[in-house]
Amino acid sequence: MSEAVPPWAVVILPIALVSVAVVTVGFDAVLSAAAVRGRPGSLRELGFRAAAPLREVLRLLVQPSRRTTAADTALGRIGVVLVPVAAVLAGAVLPLGFRSLSDPTVGIVWFNAMEALAWAAVWLTGWGPNSALSLIGGYRFLAQGLAYELPHMFAITTAALGAESLQVGEVVAAQDGLWFAVWMPVAFFVYLLSAMAMSFWGPFGHPLGRDAAGGAAMELSGVDRLVFLGGRWLLMVVTAGVSVPLFLGGGHGPLLPAWAWTLVKTALVLAALVAGRRLLPTLRMERYTEFAWLVLVPATLLQALVVAVVVLNR
C-alpha cells in the first residue's frame, strides 16, 4: 500500500518532526502563560508568548554546560542524545498520508523498540551527574516503564492484530472503512496514556518532577538540556503521531488529500494531549502501577480477545 519516497525525505523527516514539535511547544507555552499571567492583552502579546520556546532554544544554546563533582559525563551524555535519536528513528515508520520514510514488515516492533530506548536514556541522564535528586528522577522513570509498557504493548499489538500485520502501511490500509479507534476504543485510550508516559510528559512527568527540582534533567544546562528536553518533545510528537496510522485511519478521509488528513489528525491528537494535560495532576507510580497492572492490563487483554474473535470471523 505504501508508496516509495524520494531519498531526500531522510532530511525532510527530522525537519518536519522538529517543526511540529516547535508548534506544539508554542501551543503549550500559550496555555501555560494564560494560567500564570492571565489572558493575553493583544495578538502581539499572544505571539510573544507562543515564541517563548524559541527564545528558550537560543538561551540554552548560549548557556555553557557544566559538570558536577565526579560526574559520569560519558554515560550522562549518551542518555541525553539518546532521546532525540530514539524519537526520530521511531518516527521513520510514521506515514505522511500513505508514504513513510521506511515501511519495514516489522514496523510496529521497530517503533516499540525505539521508544523503549527512552528507558535507558532517562535513567542514564539521571545517573550521570552524581546528584541525588537527579538519580531519584532517573529511577522514577524505570518504575514508570514497568507500569506503562505492558498495556502499551498490548494496545499496539491489538492494532496489529486488527490488520494481521506488523507493517504500519498495512495497518493503515486495513482501516480503509472503519478506523480502529472506533472498534478498539480501549486500546486507543491506553495508547494515548502510554504515549504521554513514554515521553515522560504531562501527567507522567514525575521523572522530571518539580518535587525533585527537575528530576533526571535537574543538572542539565545549556545544549545538553536543549537536546534532552527537545528530544522529549520529539518523542511526544512521534508517539502521538503514531496513534494516527495505528488507530485513526492514517491518511484515510474524505475530500482532503491523504497527507493533509494525517496532519489534521496528528494536530488534533497533540492539541488534545496538550490541553488535556491541564486537567490532571502528576500520576505517581506508587499509585498508578497498581491501576496499570490490575485494570489496564486485563482491559487491553480483553480488547485483544475481542479483536481476535472478530478477526477469526472475518
Binding site: 494560567a35 499571567r37 495532576p281 502528576t282
Partner: peptide
C-alpha cells in the same frame, strides 16, 4: 502543594 503535585495550571491561577 499543587505545584508539587504536578498540577501547575491551578497552582499558577491560585498564585495570581
Amino acid at each position: 502543594l499543587l505545584s508539587l503535585a504536578g498540577w501547575g495550571d491551578p497552582a499558577a491561577r491560585l498564585r495570581r
